[in-house]
């Protein structure tokens, strides 16, 4: 498919298949597909699965009451740093499926096995490298999937966001990383190429990691390793909504979060001057609140200007103007509430 390949966490991944901008616009306006098989599905099976997850992750697993429902969460270390961000699907009371990032998969497995031995020694935790994952995203994504998988519509058309269902050998979830509607489909790796080719023949354009990054940035979704990592408090990475500090449930990292309240926040930036915001650029705030840093930045194809996620002092509010140090210049940027784009519409 004439893809430009790059190394990504040890995986040989397509950066783009021609023009990253075209791929981006195609997902916003129609449909595109991403091979995201580098992400790892992990099956957690046994009677103690829920009890284990109650302690393992920061979001409250008891929000999952209905089979097929999914939950986005961070897995924290005892210091409250983010080991990984992940999605957990509730399949049955003795079977949960987790999807974790590629670059952190080995570390995640080691951590989970260690905690398993402590919390629920009987639990089976199985990495599913025999599975592949294809994300079909865009306003026309679901229709294309139904066209390519005859019969699947009945089982999946009533899925709400963050819900999934099995159809034949396909696990179809209404989730994504683009801010558009669509499905993430987990299937046996041996069937992935033929499924991909069928989607392609039906007119679904392949999209690479490059478009995936600009789409998720516009959608205001965190990227592990950039917007947060083991040294970052999730409350300072815009992930407070995923951390359940209200219930009396104890989880790994909870005490650390209670002990050191957030002093920074993740905000959106829109560049007012000409240029491109990039991660690690320094942000200078006006009101004496101190400095911050861009965690993810780039060019937004939908806004046709540069945007960023930045970790800034709590004193900064949407509407404020800040300066970003780009090479030898200070460029003007406006603080905004993200997401920047959802379902094809500009929100800032």
């Amino acid at each position: 498919m004439n893809a430009k390949m790059v190394d990504f966490g040890g995986w040989d991944m397509p950066l783009h298949y021609g023009s990253q901008l075209d791929e981006h616009h195609k997902v916003r306006s129609d449909v595109g597909m991403f091979d995201v098989s580098h992400m790892l599905a992990v099956d957690i099976e046994g009677g103690d699965a829920r009890a284990f997850l109650r302690q393992l992750v920061a979001n409250n697993i008891d929000k999952l009451t209905q089979p097929g429902k999914a939950l986005y969460s961070c897995m924290l270390n005892p210091d409250g740093g983010v080991i990984d961000d992940l999605i957990i699907y509730f399949l049955t009371e003795s079977h949960f499926r987790m999807v974790v990032n590629a670059g952190t998969a080995d570390k995640d497995m080691a951590w989970m096995l260690l905690q398993r031995d402590r919390i629920a020694p009987g639990l089976e935790i199985t990495p599913r490298r025999d599975l592949a994952m294809i994300a079909v995203q865009g306003p026309n994504a679901r229709a294309k999937v139904w066209q390519v998988l005859p019969g699947s519509q009945t089982d999946t058309e009533n899925l709400k966001l963050f819900q999934a269902a099995f159809f034949d050998k396909y696990f179809i979830a209404r989730t994504g990383y683009t801010g558009e509607d669509g499905f993430e489909i987990t299937l046996p790796a041996v069937d992935a190429a033929s499924f991909w080719n069928k989607l392609h023949a039906a007119g679904v354009a392949p999209a690479g990691l490059g478009a995936r990054d600009t789409l998720r940035l516009e959608a205001g979704m965190n990227l592990y390793g950039q917007d947060m990592d083991e040294t970052i408090n999730p409350l300072e990475a815009g992930l407070g909504w995923t951390v359940d500090l209200k219930s009396d449930r104890d989880f790994i990292g909870k005490q650390a979060l209670l002990d050191k309240p957030a002093i920074q926040q993740l905000t959106g930036l829109v560049l007012l001057d000409r240029g491109v915001l990039r991660s690690h650029q320094k942000v200078v705030t006006q009101n004496g609140g101190g400095e911050g840093e861009i965690t993810s930045g780039g060019f937004s194809p939908t806004l046709n200007q540069s945007i960023a996620l930045a970790r800034l002092p709590l004193a900064v509010s949407p509407g404020d103007e800040v300066q970003v140090v780009v090479r030898d210049k200070q460029l003007k940027a406006k603080v905004v509430k993200y997401p920047f784009v959802r379902n094809g519409k500009i929100l800032v």
């Binding site: 430009k4 950066l15 023009s19 901008l21 490059g210 000409r274 240029g275 491109v276 060019f299 540069s306």
Partner: peptide
Amino acid sequence: LGDMVFVE
């Protein structure tokens, strides 16, 4: 480099 978005 791919799609250009800024030139100085």
